[in-house]
Amino acid sequence: MKDIDDRTRTELEAAAFRRLVEHLRERTDVQNIDLMNLAGFCRNCLSNWLKDAADQRGVALSKEDSRTHVYGMPYEEWKQLHQSEASPSQLADFEKSKPGH
């Protein structure tokens, strides 16, 4: 993307982020712990990164609002509808590969 101006690059990156969020909203069968174990990040990480970006720019965005944006609904509602309890195997894998964030 070396020949793309900064504004266009930012717009493309934003579009890719929106598509990722949309994809994760549709894939409610994929649990956060599975994402963490395979990729080292999950929906909560994305919402935290969104809040961090807002904080860096002085934009008021609560943790709850950033999670609602990523999940497409309040986090507690998403958990009730879609989150299952992690298996002992998933938890063991998480402990082995636990990211530092």
Results as ranks from 00 to 15, higher is better:
38 L>I: 06
29 D>V: 06
23 H>Y: 14
71 Y>Q: 00
27 R>M: 03
30 V>Y: 05
79 K>D: 02
40 G>Y: 07
54 A>G: 01
94 F>S: 12
22 E>C: 03
16 A>H: 05
96 K>L: 09
22 E>P: 00
30 V>D: 01
95 E>P: 00
47 S>K: 05
20 L>Q: 13
31 Q>I: 07
68 T>R: 15
27 R>E: 06
27 R>F: 10
60 A>I: 10
91 L>V: 11
66 S>A: 14
37 N>H: 03
8 T>I: 13
85 E>T: 05
33 I>N: 05
56 Q>P: 03
83 Q>V: 03
24 L>T: 01
42 C>S: 04
48 N>C: 05
53 A>E: 11
32 N>P: 09
46 L>V: 03
50 L>H: 04
77 E>A: 09
42 C>H: 02
64 E>Y: 13
9 R>W: 12
14 A>I: 02
59 V>N: 02
2 K>N: 14
12 L>D: 00
18 R>E: 14
71 Y>L: 01
54 A>M: 08
77 E>S: 07
64 E>A: 13
41 F>T: 05
98 K>Q: 14
6 D>H: 12
74 P>Q: 06
82 H>G: 13
65 D>R: 11
32 N>L: 09
79 K>R: 13
27 R>W: 04
85 E>C: 08
24 L>I: 03
40 G>C: 02
34 D>Q: 13
57 R>Y: 04
22 E>L: 01
67 R>S: 09
72 G>P: 04
10 T>A: 15
74 P>R: 06
42 C>T: 03
40 G>R: 01
34 D>Y: 11
36 M>P: 01
12 L>T: 01
29 D>Y: 04
96 K>N: 13
57 R>D: 06
65 D>P: 04
56 Q>F: 08
65 D>W: 08
100 G>D: 12
28 T>K: 10
86 A>G: 02
76 E>I: 02
15 A>H: 05
84 S>A: 15
13 E>H: 11
4 I>W: 11
12 L>K: 07
43 R>E: 06
67 R>M: 07
9 R>C: 04
38 L>C: 09
85 E>K: 15
63 K>F: 05
44 N>F: 14
83 Q>S: 09
13 E>A: 10
76 E>R: 10
27 R>P: 04
26 E>C: 03
18 R>V: 08
29 D>G: 03
55 D>L: 10
101 H>F: 14
51 K>L: 10
82 H>A: 06
78 W>E: 00
90 Q>P: 01
52 D>E: 13
32 N>T: 00
45 C>W: 10
67 R>D: 07
31 Q>L: 05
91 L>I: 12
97 S>I: 15
98 K>D: 07
4 I>D: 11
20 L>F: 06
55 D>G: 02
82 H>T: 09
63 K>G: 08
40 G>H: 01
91 L>M: 14
92 A>Y: 09
3 D>Q: 11
29 D>E: 08
26 E>N: 01
13 E>P: 00
84 S>T: 11
50 L>A: 07
44 N>W: 15
55 D>H: 13
19 R>T: 08
79 K>F: 09
8 T>M: 10
95 E>T: 11
83 Q>E: 15
101 H>W: 15
45 C>L: 08
50 L>I: 01
78 W>R: 04
67 R>G: 04
95 E>S: 15
76 E>H: 10
35 L>Q: 10
59 V>H: 06
67 R>F: 04
78 W>T: 01
96 K>A: 14
2 K>S: 15
63 K>S: 07
65 D>H: 11
12 L>Y: 06
18 R>Y: 14
64 E>K: 10
45 C>P: 00
